[in-house]
Protein backbone atom coordinates (compact mmCIF):
# COMPACT_ATOMS: atom_id res chain seq x y z
CA UNK A 1 0.00 0.00 0.00
CA UNK A 2 1.38 3.42 -0.90
CA UNK A 3 1.83 6.07 1.74
CA UNK A 4 -1.12 7.98 0.28
CA UNK A 5 -3.31 4.84 0.51
CA UNK A 6 -2.30 4.29 4.12
CA UNK A 7 -3.14 7.88 4.97
CA UNK A 8 -6.50 7.59 3.18
CA UNK A 9 -7.20 4.44 5.16
CA UNK A 10 -6.45 6.19 8.47
CA UNK A 11 -8.68 9.07 7.38
CA UNK A 12 -11.57 6.66 6.67
CA UNK A 13 -11.14 4.94 10.03
CA UNK A 14 -11.05 8.28 11.83
CA UNK A 15 -14.32 9.26 10.20
CA UNK A 16 -15.87 5.94 11.17
CA UNK A 17 -14.71 6.41 14.76
CA UNK A 18 -16.05 9.98 14.83
CA UNK A 19 -19.01 10.13 12.42
CA UNK A 20 -20.04 13.55 13.68
CA UNK A 21 -16.99 15.24 12.12
CA UNK A 22 -17.81 17.74 9.40
CA UNK A 23 -14.44 17.55 7.75
CA UNK A 24 -10.92 16.25 8.24
CA UNK A 25 -7.74 17.65 6.72
CA UNK A 26 -4.27 16.22 7.09
CA UNK A 27 -1.61 18.70 6.03
CA UNK A 28 2.13 19.23 6.18
CA UNK A 29 3.33 21.56 8.95
CA UNK A 30 4.08 24.12 6.23
CA UNK A 31 0.44 24.15 5.19
CA UNK A 32 0.01 21.89 2.15
CA UNK A 33 -2.91 19.43 2.07
CA UNK A 34 -1.96 15.73 2.09
CA UNK A 35 -5.25 13.82 2.52
CA UNK A 36 -8.63 15.34 3.27
CA UNK A 37 -12.37 15.24 2.66
CA UNK A 38 -12.82 18.99 2.46
CA UNK A 39 -13.72 21.03 -0.63
CA UNK A 40 -11.76 23.87 0.89
CA UNK A 41 -8.66 21.81 1.71
CA UNK A 42 -5.88 24.13 0.44
CA UNK A 43 -7.08 27.03 2.55
CA UNK A 44 -7.91 24.90 5.57
CA UNK A 45 -4.50 23.20 5.36
CA UNK A 46 -2.68 26.54 5.38
CA UNK A 47 -4.78 27.83 8.27
CA UNK A 48 -4.32 24.62 10.25
CA UNK A 49 -0.54 24.90 9.88
CA UNK A 50 -0.69 28.52 11.02
CA UNK A 51 -2.90 27.64 14.01
CA UNK A 52 -0.58 24.82 15.01
CA UNK A 53 2.61 26.89 14.53
CA UNK A 54 1.22 29.81 16.47
CA UNK A 55 -0.26 27.50 19.13
CA UNK A 56 3.13 25.88 19.70
CA UNK A 57 4.76 29.26 20.05
CA UNK A 58 2.10 30.57 22.44
CA UNK A 59 2.35 27.41 24.50
CA UNK A 60 6.12 27.83 24.70
CA UNK A 61 6.07 31.57 25.45
CA UNK A 62 3.43 31.28 28.16
CA UNK A 63 5.10 28.19 29.65
CA UNK A 64 2.25 25.77 29.03
CA UNK A 65 4.58 22.94 28.04
CA UNK A 66 4.19 20.91 24.87
CA UNK A 67 1.16 21.79 22.77
CA UNK A 68 -1.70 19.28 22.89
CA UNK A 69 -4.01 20.99 20.44
CA UNK A 70 -5.28 24.36 19.24
CA UNK A 71 -9.04 24.81 19.48
CA UNK A 72 -11.16 27.41 17.73
CA UNK A 73 -14.69 27.44 19.07
CA UNK A 74 -17.43 29.26 17.18
CA UNK A 75 -21.08 29.36 18.16
CA UNK A 76 -21.74 26.69 15.53
CA UNK A 77 -18.85 24.35 16.11
CA UNK A 78 -15.22 23.56 16.69
CA UNK A 79 -12.09 23.53 14.62
CA UNK A 80 -9.39 21.54 16.37
CA UNK A 81 -5.78 21.19 15.24
CA UNK A 82 -3.39 18.49 16.47
CA UNK A 83 0.26 17.88 15.68
CA UNK A 84 0.81 14.62 13.81
CA UNK A 85 4.48 14.18 14.66
CA UNK A 86 7.07 16.65 13.40
CA UNK A 87 5.80 16.82 9.85
CA UNK A 88 2.03 16.68 9.98
CA UNK A 89 -1.06 18.52 11.12
CA UNK A 90 -4.46 16.95 11.73
CA UNK A 91 -7.38 19.37 11.56
CA UNK A 92 -10.98 18.46 12.39
CA UNK A 93 -14.20 20.42 12.12
CA UNK A 94 -17.07 19.34 14.36
CA UNK A 95 -20.52 20.73 15.16
CA UNK A 96 -21.13 22.53 18.45
CA UNK A 97 -22.88 19.61 20.14
CA UNK A 98 -19.91 17.31 19.54
CA UNK A 99 -18.27 15.42 22.37
CA UNK A 100 -14.92 17.20 22.53
CA UNK A 101 -13.47 14.77 25.06
CA UNK A 102 -14.13 11.83 22.77
CA UNK A 103 -12.77 13.75 19.79
CA UNK A 104 -9.54 14.46 21.65
CA UNK A 105 -9.20 10.86 22.70
CA UNK A 106 -9.63 9.48 19.18
CA UNK A 107 -7.83 12.29 17.35
CA UNK A 108 -4.67 12.01 19.43
CA UNK A 109 -4.47 8.31 18.71
CA UNK A 110 -5.06 8.86 15.00
CA UNK A 111 -2.51 11.69 14.98
CA UNK A 112 0.08 9.26 16.32
CA UNK A 113 -0.78 6.76 13.57
CA UNK A 114 -0.58 9.48 10.92
CA UNK A 115 2.81 10.55 12.27
CA UNK A 116 4.12 7.02 11.84
CA UNK A 117 3.14 7.01 8.16
CA UNK A 118 4.23 10.58 7.44
Amino acid sequence: MTKQDQLQQILRELKQALPELRSVVVASTDGLPIVHDSADAPRVAAMAATALGLGKRISQTTELGALEETIVRGNQGYFVVYAAGEKGVLALAAPSGANLGLIHLEAREFATRLAQVL
Binding site: D30, T50, T61
Partner: peptide, 21 residues
Protein backbone atom coordinates in the same frame (compact mmCIF):
# COMPACT_ATOMS: atom_id res chain seq x y z
CA UNK B 1 11.75 37.52 18.84
CA UNK B 2 8.63 35.47 18.32
CA UNK B 3 8.98 33.15 15.35
CA UNK B 4 6.81 30.35 13.99
CA UNK B 5 9.00 28.18 11.81
CA UNK B 6 7.86 24.85 10.44
CA UNK B 7 9.75 22.30 8.41
CA UNK B 8 9.30 23.02 4.71
CA UNK B 9 7.97 20.21 2.55
CA UNK B 10 8.61 22.10 -0.71
CA UNK B 11 11.93 22.88 -2.36
CA UNK B 12 12.22 26.54 -1.36
CA UNK B 13 15.96 26.63 -0.79
CA UNK B 14 15.76 26.37 3.00
CA UNK B 15 14.70 23.86 5.63
CA UNK B 16 12.29 26.01 7.63
CA UNK B 17 9.54 28.42 6.72
CA UNK B 18 7.36 30.86 8.65
CA UNK B 19 3.75 29.64 8.99
CA UNK B 20 2.16 32.33 11.15
CA UNK B 21 4.31 35.34 11.99
Amino acid sequence: IVDTDARSSEAIGKALTTVAM
